[in-house]
């Protein structure tokens, strides 16, 4: 209704201010509540800006996770190599920016362990993910959230290899962020000090969008 450009500029500024406030009040030790498996939402919803038929179909054998930016070891990782890393399971609530939420079970390697393995400069500001979704999906994750103990490189949903709907071969599960900041079909991660924007962030969703 109101969409004068000055109002829009002001709202963008407030959103940036909100990013700073949220980063400031974010306690990296506060854990997302976990739930018993009996509370898992079935069926767990598929949600994207495209239909399931348009979800990326990735051949696991050909896929490699590309690692870039401020890291010591930039080697790419095959799925088999990643599967060998220690994994943990979490049953947490996925909260969508739209308001709905669902409890799911995700299993994978804590991102902070992986960042350590690749020798990432954890003083950098962001880990930026690029994904295989159509039209190119990407999203920046602030480093403190990337280092949160529950932020996870996810390989399994409900104890099964991640199905196509939920991001095969790898998604980043961030229970302290809204769903749109939980990238699926990840192709690469870049440790960077630059804010490189994101698919939804660029359209106006608050970039921090974390709880």
């Amino acid at each position: 209704m109101v969409d004068s450009s000055s109002a829009e500029e002001l709202l963008k500024k407030v959103s940036k201010f909100n990013d700073a406030v949220q980063a400031w009040i974010f306690n990296p030790d506060a854990l997302a509540p976990t739930f018993p498996e009996s509370m898992i939402t079935k069926p767990f919803p598929f949600n994207a800006y495209y239909d399931l038929d348009d979800a990326p179909e990735i051949a696991g054998a050909d896929w490699k996770l590309e690692v870039r930016g401020l890291v010591d070891n930039k080697k790419s990782w095959t799925l088999d190599e990643l599967y060998k890393l220690p994994q943990v399971k979490q049953v947490t609530r996925h909260i969508c920016v739209e308001g709905w939420s669902a409890i799911g079970s995700w299993t994978g390697t804590p991102l902070r362990d992986f960042l350590k393995i690749i020798g990432a400069d954890t003083r950098a500001k962001y880990v930026w993910f690029q994904c295989a979704d159509k039209d190119g999906y990407n999203s920046p994750l602030d480093m403190r959230t990337a280092l949160h103990p529950q932020t996870q490189m996810t390989f399994k949903f409900a104890d099964q290899i991640l199905p196509r709907a939920y991001g095969f071969p790898m998604k980043i599960r961030v229970p302290t962020k809204l769903g749109f900041k939980n990238p699926k079909y990840v192709l690469s991660m870049e440790v960077t000090n630059d804010y490189k924007g994101g698919y939804w962030e660029d359209q106006g969703y608050n970039s921090f969008s974390g709880s």
């Binding site: 209704m1 969409d3 709202l11 407030v14 959103s15 909100n18 920016v97 106006g204 969703y205 608050n206």
Partner: peptide
């Protein structure tokens, strides 16, 4: 016609600005 923001993203910007 009685909502503000045009779409979800715009409405969230308004909501989280007016909240202050």
């Amino acid at each position: 016609s009685i909502t503000l923001g045009g779409w979800l993203g715009g409405a969230l910007l308004w909501h989280f600005a007016a909240m202050w």
